[in-house]
Amino acid sequence: MNDAFILAGIRDVARKHVGWEGPIEPDMRLVEDLSLDSIKLLTLAIEVENRFQICLDPERDHELITVRDLVAAISHQISDTQKPEEENSHRDTEDTE
């Protein structure tokens, strides 16, 4: 899943769940530029978790300053989620061989 796809997902979530109608670019700041208060930030985090079927680390929410940070966190979690499956898939192949 590439960053452009993730960014498109964030745009869709922001429009549907926090009422953001404007453009969303990677350099934009979540609080200052997207006008997200703490409840809207939480809503955005939870809804991207739902969309991408991942669990972000709530302890690291404060590190999400820009849209780019959020894209990176989602990308990282997706990679982590897929790793065990890939490893299993690789092992299965070896077993078959």
Binding site: I46, E49, N50, C55, L56, P58
Partner: peptide, 12 residues
Amino acid sequence: QRHHNVDRLEAL
């Protein structure tokens, strides 16, 4: 039924 990360909601 709707939320993926229920642990986050419980923490909330």
